[in-house]
């Protein structure tokens, strides 16, 4: 029995990381520029994106380059979209990830060869809405990180879109347009000094009842972002997602070292290859997880995210 190989997708912060992650086994790399993309791990100019495309083309297999355009778009950005997506198409980017209809309209009008991956973060929650965006041009649905395994496993039966699921790394849990750390510093009258600005330091929040959890927080031109205290890690249970025919497994590399991301890509690469070679004989190997654990920040737990959680409302 042969099966269709799911894509292994990872973010990269610069060209060097991109090259190393492709070498480690990534099938696709998500890059971006914070003018258009939210929470990109590093900034890529259009020139660097073109170089990324040519690096991908040189790989010994089919490797794709995606560009994050998942900002909440304002009027000013609307004016910049046509030229940007035209350029992305011209340099050979494969797809853009979007959450705002303005991006979809700009791509359809100016860069019809660019594929559209619908990613509205925590609000991409059901297959019918995926199909809604599919009818308007999207080819891929990026599942919200708050969905459970049953909901995700049911997706492929109900949509013709490709389904992408985050299998590893941190997730965004709060996004504000406000500069909340800066506001707090101003409130404390301690804003002087470069060391105390939100965009340079390594910062996290703690809540009195959860002393073991550290929630990374950072500020940039798109506002304030708070991230999960744990890193999703689905390597042990990847089989369930592969059996559900999920098309793309994403590793979020934000706020991680290149070495860490490389290790994670290798582990998932090995698991996917082993499964696709002989699905019936697939067995999870402890060494895959152990390699990740060896590089894992001891203050951040590896978790199953919301895959097996019961949520109420």
């Amino acid at each position: 029995m042969t099966v269709k190989k799911p894509e292994l997708l990872v973010t990269a912060s610069n060209l060097e990381e991109l090259q190393r992650l492709i070498a480690a086994g990534a099938d696709a790399v998500l890059i971006g520029d914070s003018r258009f993309g939210t929470r990109v791990p590093g900034e890529f100019t259009l020139g660097q994106m073109a170089e990324a495309v040519s690096i991908a083309k040189q790989a010994d297999r089919d490797v794709r380059i995606y560009v994050a355009m998942n900002n909440i778009v304002d009027n000013k950005m609307v004016d910049e979209l046509p030229a940007y997506v035209t350029e992305l198409e011209r340099i050979g980017v494969d797809a853009v990830a979007f959450g705002d209809p303005a991006v979809l309209m700009a791509v359809r009008a100016n860069a019809p060869k660019l594929k559209l991956h619908w990613n509205a973060e925590m609000t991409s929650t059901n297959h019918d809405t995926a199909n809604f965006w599919g009818r308007r041009g999207a080819t891929r649905f990026v599942c919200a990180r708050e969905l459970n395994m049953e909901q995700i496993a049911g997706m492929k039966a109900k949509t013709n879109l490709e389904v992408q699921v985050q299998v590893h790394g941190m997730t965004n849990i709060y996004h504000s347009k406000r500069s909340l750390v800066q506001s707090y510093m101003d409130f404390k009258k301690l804003a002087e000094g470069a060391g105390a600005t939100g965009d340079e330091a390594d910062m996290y929040l703690m809540e009195a009842d959860r002393p073991d959890e550290r929630y990374p927080i950072f500020e940039d031109s798109n506002g304030t972002h708070i991230m999960s205290a744990d890193d999703v890690c689905m390597i042990e249970n990847l089989q369930e997602l592969m059996e559900a025919n999920i098309d793309s497994f994403k590793i979020e590399g934000l706020l991680k070292s290149v070495e860490y991301n490389e290790t994670v890509v290798r582990a998932y690469r090995a698991a996917i290859d082993a499964y696709c070679k002989a699905p019936d004989h697939y067995r999870f190997q402890d060494e895959w997880l152990e390699a990740i654990q060896a590089k894992q920040d001891p203050n951040r737990e590896l978790s199953y995210g919301f895959f097996y959680k019961e949520q109420v409302y």
């Binding site: 990180r145 849990i173 019961e310 109420v312």
Partner: peptide
Amino acid sequence: SSFSGRCVLSNHFTDRDSNRGGCCQSC
């Protein structure tokens, strides 16, 4: 204080789904 809908603090802190009405105002 977040973009409305772009916050799952409740999901993470209390397993309550904020985008289906379970917000516990963790902000």
